[in-house]
Design a binder for these strands. Structure first.
Lengths: 171, 171
DNA sequence: TTACTCATGTAACAAGTTACATGATTTA
DNA sequence: TAAATCATGTAACTTGTTACATGAGTAA
């Protein structure tokens, strides 16, 4: 029964976020949002989204409505309790500010152990990759909706931070 | 048998990193490094570390040596193949630059949907939390070894980036 | 009618989490 | 000798992944 767990997972919170911005969406549509958004940290895999939506229904955070449809289409909307849980998740400053899993920060202290030649090559490769991603993101910027643009701009700022850090290390 | 998987997980890579910096460490000592390092993204739980080390031994990336000891102490060191796999993991620019799971970026585009009053309160709470973490990190800075200091400085830069972003939004 | 998109889901697996359990060694 | 630390590990659970399977509706 998953009896009212402590809090929402990141995916559950993000699903509620999608449902707030796209009311009465199907699970399929929620998946698509994750799949299409280049910023999504999740693959939007069926094996994650369908079970997560099932949990949210079980916990009465969203309500399910069956469409008059032979393929069993269902749409979802937040309940009152769902809106409360969503806002709690969204305003959880401790979690919002937490570092999460950052592969760059995990590796950074270890790079010093590489040979100088390898370090130089790595710095070059990293800059190339960062520049490429920065350009790709910048190009899409004007094609994005407001929400995705915020995510993209934050991502660009992070890339810039890393570029600057690599330059500082080289000096 | 976990037959030579595609690549190392982040935890496996980080474990090799600990073993490089602290040769012939025990699994217990590796755990402690994760538990003590305030930057660690993992809890250093036994249920994660022991199985991961077992996998690394099975894949012959580390070799195990039994100490002459009644409590079954074992120490670990990288094999030649382990050093290669570690360097590949460490220099994997695609993964190093990847965004990982960032709770801040997940939430940022959704904050605009909150009421103006809630947004103002949230901005204040976020700044307070960011400031507090920044100060706490700064205080520890001179007590850290070189590796942890790099991680901490990267973390501080990230906190500053977010503080600046919040200020920019408010304007 | 063929192919694509919409729509739902399961199965096998991977890799973490917390909590529990056990015993040796060291230090106060 | 009592308590803390060192040391190893398992069990139950959570939540993600990829790959597979199925079928309805729509557009070429």
């Amino acid at each position: 029964m998953t009896k009212s767990r402590a809090g929402l997972t990141e995916l559950e919170g993000a699903i509620l976020g999608v449902l707030v911005r796209a009311p009465s969406a199907t699970a399929y549509r929620v998946r698509r949002v994750f799949q299409e958004s280049r910023s999504a940290e999740w693959s939007g895999s069926a094996g994650a989204v369908y079970p997560a939506i099932r949990r949210l229904v079980t916990d009465r955070l969203i309500k399910e409505r069956a469409e008059a449809d032979a393929r069993g289409t269902h749409t979802y909307d937040l309940t009152r309790a769902g809106k409360d849980a969503y806002e709690r998740w969204l305003c959880d400053v401790t979690r919002a500010v937490g570092p999460g899993v950052d592969p760059f920060r995990t590796r950074a202290p270890l790079w010093a152990g590489l040979s100088p030649a390898t370090q130089r090559k790595l710095a070059k490769d990293l800059k190339a990759e960062l520049d490429e991603q920065r350009e790709a993101l910048t190009r899409t910027l004007n094609k994005l909706d407001a929400g995705d643009e915020i995510t993209a701009r934050l991502h660009i700022a992070l890339l810039d931070l890393r570029l600057k850090w690599i330059d500082d290390q080289a000096r």
